[in-house]
Design a binder for these strands. Sequence first.
DNA 1: CGTTAGCACTCCTTTTAAGCGAGTGCTAAT
DNA 2: ATTAGCACTCGCTTAAAAGGAGTGCTAACG
Lengths: 341, 341
Amino acid sequence: MLSERQRMILNAIVDDYIRSAEPVGSRSISKRGDVTFSPATIRNEMADLEELGLLEQPHTSAGRIPSIKGYRYYVDHLVTLDGLGDQDVRKLRTFFAEKMNHWEGVIGHAATLLSQLTNYTSIVLGPEMFSTTLKHFQLIPINDVSAVAIIVANTGHVEHRTITIPDGISMDDMAKIVNLLNDKLTGIPFHRVKSVLHSEIAKELTRYIDHCEEILSLLEQTITEEQEPKVFLSGASNMLTQPEFKDIDKAKSILEMLEETQLLMQLFQSNPSGIQVRIGTENAMEAINQCSLITATYSYEGQSLGTIGILGPTRMEYGKVISLLDYLSKDIALLMSRWHK
Amino acid sequence: MLSERQRMILNAIVDDYIRSAEPVGSRSISKRGDVTFSPATIRNEMADLEELGLLEQPHTSAGRIPSIKGYRYYVDHLVTLDGLGDQDVRKLRTFFAEKMNHWEGVIGHAATLLSQLTNYTSIVLGPEMFSTTLKHFQLIPINDVSAVAIIVANTGHVEHRTITIPDGISMDDMAKIVNLLNDKLTGIPFHRVKSVLHSEIAKELTRYIDHCEEILSLLEQTITEEQEPKVFLSGASNMLTQPEFKDIDKAKSILEMLEETQLLMQLFQSNPSGIQVRIGTENAMEAINQCSLITATYSYEGQSLGTIGILGPTRMEYGKVISLLDYLSKDIALLMSRWHK
DNA sequence: CGTTAGCACTCCTTTTAAGCGAGTGCTAAT
DNA sequence: ATTAGCACTCGCTTAAAAGGAGTGCTAACG
């Protein structure tokens, strides 16, 4: 349990360090105004806080910087969430104003906005189709051997891919298949599509058409494989602004990680609804052990759909970022519900 | 006009500098084996080459490095295109083997491949729809007020966006409009869609439906706005590997530029078919004045469709990159023609 | 007893100086 | 025409010195 004074001092140190990126000394805290004790007193408290593991010293005779544990305490107990400035609010308001006609637009724009407002890197995961239902399925022939399969979800989400039509399947057959699929699958949640495809559709299909196994597995692939969400990244170069990454090698390993979509999705794996803060080594990923990741989920009809997140140095403006993510995730949810209500 | 010996020396200097990134001295050239003259002789020639503007000296008593003009001469007259190693060829072969079912897959994969094989940054522009024709147009209602418009090109390219249905337009009306559009627009090249929409469609539409101006402009937007090609980027972090960008600020300004899709498209603006090399300040963009950009167009039925490119330091392995781009652009063209023949 | 002034000490950072060495340009010899 | 020899330049590395921010401890103060 920390005393009130210790908490004030810890708060002051974290705030100062977030601004300056340099170890904070007792003198500078004493001069801040909000902590009215002398440097000597503050030094004593700082020694205690260091013993508790909340602060560390880069070397003897340097100021203190917050440890991971220190940031954690700050985030859990001290941070103030007033962080949205006038400009920020104005930009966020215009977020609604811009006409967006597909979700990629919304999500991509949100990513850009986040990185611009924070000067950190933003990572945004597009909506998962898990809880959405199939609205429409269609095959459009391109030529004799290939067709475009188009899948529309009830959220307006569209996926498509080109498939090769197996030999021995006529145009008529295709039309029948499409009708059958629309009959049976419309309104079915995507995560159940696969089983319905196997149980009901397979039987019907064998009646009409030969070679049905082939086309069935093709459709299965087409419909089920595309469920992985898309990742949007913005402001990766902002990482280079941070003094902690002036070392090219550190910067490089982070940027390399950011380029691997797979890894980013791993990073977002366990996202409980609401806002989550992962500080430094609390992140599983080696490359971002000196970073903090703050994520917020956006949801539609109570179901959490996707995630927006900010990656920055552990020395991050937690207050500002948290309130921004909170605000924007609700905005996105609202925007999506307006579309599809 | 350069003498044979001068060309050998220039070639040796460029080759050496590309490998080492350090100013090349007369002594080290003399020891290479392929230029059998003494350092003193080589020094004389180097002084001449500097006077011609092909070499420069970072400071007195340093070795020489190629100037922009020097690289230009190297690329135009000296470079050897044998650059594809065994591994490279093997990886390129597997490019065809992977199953790709939409063009984004091909293009994205090509970008990854290029950056991995070269350790530079690759930029790839997806196919322009300019010369392609409309294959199918469809509106799929999502709910009472919105629908998804889907546009399929004869190349299998699919675009979609959500539109809001204006008041006073019924489902029947929509169906009529879709039929009309498919009748009139199928087979029409995209660049002519707009005018056809205004001339023929507008007349017909006024007969059936009120409020037609509104929906017409909506459709026009939908169909014409989506023609801008998509940009794929890979290996941006490779820039940080190059010693010339160990300076964080230089690296940052380049990475920032790479994040702006608009700028990248500008960069590719004038792309005559075939391979183009732009060295250093030959690039219009300030941020990449210390970079070289090599681009190759890939085409389909004689019409150049899109561009693949490599961005690296001026000290780039021109031979290897040029042959690689040449090879891959033809591969992509072949792959696309196989789909749609 | 909590708080604060004073002071010696630590250690990082910046500055200055010296020496090294790769490379050049010129001259004279081959 | 080519090459060996040599004095000279200048960036880079290493070493030493100066500077300074900040601490921990002790003793004095209210």
